[in-house]
Amino acid sequence: MTREEPEDPSAIRCHLAQLLETKSMTLVELSERVGISVVNLSVLKNNRAKAIRFSTLQAICVALDCEVGELLSYAPVS
């Protein structure tokens, strides 16, 4: 049995840059608040992440006072 891969993993978009700007927060400050390296947050911010842990997602949402749907969206490429 094989695991099904999404047709286009880049269809999931991360809006971390916009949220950081809205909250007037830097990536370094977010890193300190959530205990995740700047490098890993940068990968997420630049839409290069292959996966995200629920604990990471929760920590980011708490730090930015946002909902998951504000941080991530799905927009299939036609």
Rank of each mutant, 00 (worst) to 15 (best):
G69K: 03
S31I: 06
N46E: 10
K23T: 11
V62L: 11
L64W: 00
R13A: 10
E29V: 10
A11C: 07
L57N: 02
L27A: 06
G69R: 03
S42E: 07
C14D: 07
E32V: 13
Q18L: 10
V77A: 11
V43S: 03
E29S: 11
A49F: 04
E7M: 11
P9T: 05
R48F: 06
V38E: 10
L41V: 04
I52K: 00
Y74P: 03
L30H: 03
R53F: 08
E32F: 12
R3V: 15
N40T: 08
S42F: 08
G35R: 02
E4C: 12
E29G: 07
E4V: 15
L57Q: 00
S10G: 09
F54V: 14
P76C: 02
E32A: 15
L44C: 02
L57V: 01
M25R: 06
S73N: 04
V38P: 06
L71M: 01
L41I: 04
K50V: 13
E21M: 15
K23N: 12
S37P: 02
V43I: 15
C66F: 01
E5Y: 13
D65C: 06
L30W: 03
Y74S: 04
R33G: 05
S78K: 12
A49R: 02
L44Q: 02
L16Y: 05
C14L: 10
V68T: 13
L44H: 01
E29N: 10
V77Y: 08
S42V: 04
S73M: 04
A75K: 14
S78C: 09
S10W: 06
I12R: 08
R13S: 12
N40C: 08
T2E: 13
R48D: 08
R13K: 15
C14F: 09
S78A: 12
L71K: 00
F54H: 14
S78W: 08
K50N: 14
I12S: 07
R33I: 07
D65K: 13
A59E: 02
P76F: 03
K45E: 13
